[in-house]
Nucleic acid binder design. Structure first.
Length: 584
RNA sequence: GCCAGCGUAGCUCAGAGGUAGAGCGGCGGUUUCGUAAACCGCGGGUCGUCAGUUCAAAUCUGACCGCUGGCUCCA
């Protein structure tokens, strides 16, 4: 395990990285005198610079550029700053169209210009005093990037680097990257036989193998039970439905690019659902609802299909078909705060149960394009904030990042190697209740619009499994492990006893399995270790005679000869409590 | 979708114009073993797909499909 890496806001590091990007630009300039320059900021771990070059860069160029950078660092060139009038700046950057564009957007009449060696850049600064201060950096990749991040603009070539204050910090960072690669869910998914994605079946479509499906089933059972306890009703809704519904909802207008084309069914157009909300609304609307029966909470593990551009697909974390752990809460506005607080409590309970201890919470407010009126928006946003404060949760405001139909709360959690994951989201919706006329009869006998909340606590089963795999590096907590105990008979004469133990475990819901192969104990242990099975029960003459098991934990720890009945009881306790501990 | 790279056996990878190789896994035997790889043997690939260049293509060219890293977008 590698400790979670907390990104530190460190100005000197940022200055160093930004300076490194200028050195990168100078190195590229020396190779391509006609290069045009985009921007070159510091990033979370390093820096990049965007270039418009006469030929595409390839990975082979990176060491060459890096060597050139090292030369520039060794030359210890001073960074010098100058202020120019915009006019002078325009003539200085006459051959740099991207820089000219930037100059026009600067409000001041004066612009800052930094020079080091043969490279001059439009730049606010600050920078290190000279290139010799750049200690530890490495170019890591090249990529295409649209000028100003807009896909209608030309694509520039971006060179990414990482940079740190010391060689040690750089080495640590690279080691952390390796560790992350070892935990990559795509790699572990294959090694642990959890899932597959097939070219023949289509990209972004996941096939869950028995072991992956077991983990999913355990999560789903837990999820359903927990929702039932917290007052949710479980529902099921169909995967396809008439297009007209999606026109009414507005999705056909606003979300069409993510939807698959309609299919013809007896002359009617049907679409595959990209979201579950409409089905839940239809269920709500099957009878006239009284204020007395609210809130209604409909939960569904609903499988949806969305078109995603081919370039964005990624293992389990970005797919085209996925199952959301969805729910929609229909309530009165005066119940909204309680409901949101309840969802927060559930969400954090889930995050905590699955062993994620680092998370942060964001409240997203009204974006520029929105539905509903501003007053309702403000009230709902305040309600979300109050719910957060009531749960004494620290949060940050993400201004303008709400969905067009309402404000939302996002919870992002970090895995064991410091990677961030989108976790629970809670969204208030002012749009659908209006479009579908979702209402209830109030105390006053009048119809009132409901407050509708969309929420998921795991996100999707696919993405959530990806986060679990990477968080645990495939060594799942006992309650989630696809195989919880392997029984290893030493010789064939111990097979009968081994099978008896297997049957006893399984009859009590414990996922035990005998390794009955004609293999050495060493081999069987090795296989179980590689599969990250929590417990290995070695049984030979002694164990058969005494009705015991010799337990090896996946950590390598050993507990010799304990009565099988005792072991089974302890194991059941660990599973029932969803403990993250292995120790019996 | 866009930019760059990549696609060889189930897996991990070597081979770079002259007809395909290793390790592991698999299969058949032998072995019956005390905590991370027992031993012997045997199979297995129209080298992502389709075109083209060539006497000859896994190798060169093009298109398509898919994957990887980014960009844009997101559960």
């Amino acid at each position: 395990m590698v400790p979670a890496k907390k990104p530190q806001k460190d100005d000197s590091l940022e200055i160093m990285r930004h300076s490194a990007s200028h050195v990168l630009a100078e190195a590229v300039l020396s190779m391509f005198p006609d290069a045009r320059f985009g921007i070159g900021p510091a990033t979370q771990d390093g820096f990049y610079y965007d270039f418009d070059l006469p030929r595409p860069l390839t990975p082979d160029d990176l060491p060459v550029i890096e060597a050139k950078m090292k030369e520039l660092v060794a030359a210890d060139l001073p960074f010098t700053r100058k202020e120019l009038s915009k006019k002078d700046a325009r003539s200085l950057f006459a051959k740099q169209p991207y820089k000219l564009e930037l100059i026009e957007e600067i409000a001041d009449e004066k612009v800052g210009v930094y020079r080091q060696g043969s490279f001059v850049d439009l730049c606010r600064g600050p920078h290190v005093a000279s290139t010799g201060e750049l200690k530890a950096f490495k170019l890591v990749s090249i990529a295409g990037a649209y000028w100003r991040g807009d896909e209608h603009n030309p694509m520039l070539q971006r060179v990414y680097g990482v940079g740190f204050a010391t060689e040690q910090a750089l080495a640590d960072y690279l080691k952390n990257l390796e560790e992350a690669a070892r935990r990559d869910h795509r790699k572990l998914g294959k090694e642990l036989d959890l899932f597959s994605i097939h070219e023949e079946a289509g990209p972004g479509l996941v096939h869950w193998h028995p072991k992956g499906a077991t983990i999913r089933r355990v999560i789903e059972d837990f999820w359903k039970d927990e929702h039932f306890k917290r007052g949710y009703d479980l529902v099921y809704t169909p995967h396809i439905g008439k297009l007209d519904l999606w026109k009414t909802s507005g999705h056909w207008n606003f979300y069409r690019e993510n939807m698959y084309d309609p299919i013809d069914v007896e002359g009617q157009e049907y679409v595959i659902k990209p979201m579950n909300c409409i089905g839940h609304i239809l269920i709500y609307k099957t009878s006239q609802r009284s204020y007395r029966e609210l809130p209604l909470r409909y939960a569904e593990l609903g499988t949806v299909y969305r078109y995603e551009r081919s370039g964005v697909l990624h293992g389990l974390s970005r797919v085209r078909g996925f199952t959301q752990d969805d729910a929609h809460i229909f309530c009165r506005f005066d119940q909204l705060e309680d409901e949101v607080a309840g969802v927060l409590d559930l969400a954090l309970f889930m995050v905590d149960t699955f062993g994620f201890s680092n998370y942060s919470i964001y409240l997203s407010t009204r974006p520029e394009k929105y539905a509903g009126d501003t007053k309702v928006w403000e009230e709902a946003t305040d309600t979300l904030a109050r719910a957060l404060e009531r749960q004494t949760l620290a949060y940050e405001i993400d201004p303008g990042e709400g969905v067009f139909y309402g404000p939302k709360i996002d919870i992002k959690f970090e895995d064991a190697v410091g990677r961030g994951w989108q976790g629970p989201t809670i969204q208030v919706d002012f749009n659908l209740p209006q479009r579908f006329d979702v209402n209830y009869v109030g105390e006053d006998g009048q119809e009132h619009m409901v407050a509708m909340v969309h929420r998921t606590v795991l996100g999707s089963m696919e993405r959530f499994l990806a986060s679990l795999i990477e968080h645990y590096g495939g060594a799942f907590p006992v309650w989630l492990a696809p195989v919880q105990a392997v029984v290893i008979p030493i010789a064939d004469r111990h097979l009968e006893y081994a099978r008896k133990l297997e049957a006893e475990l399984r009859s009590e819901g414990v996922r035990g399995v005998v390794d009955a192969r004609s293999e050495t104990v060493n081999m069987k242990i090795r296989k179980a270790q590689l599969e990250k099975v929590p417990y290995m029960l070695v049984v030979g003459d002694r164990e058969v005679a005494d009705a015991t098991v010799s337990v090896r934990l996946r950590s390598g720890e050993q507990v010799n000869a304990q009565p099988f009945a005792d072991f089974k009881q302890k194991l059941k306790g660990i599973i029932a409590s969803r403990s993250l501990e292995l120790k019996l």
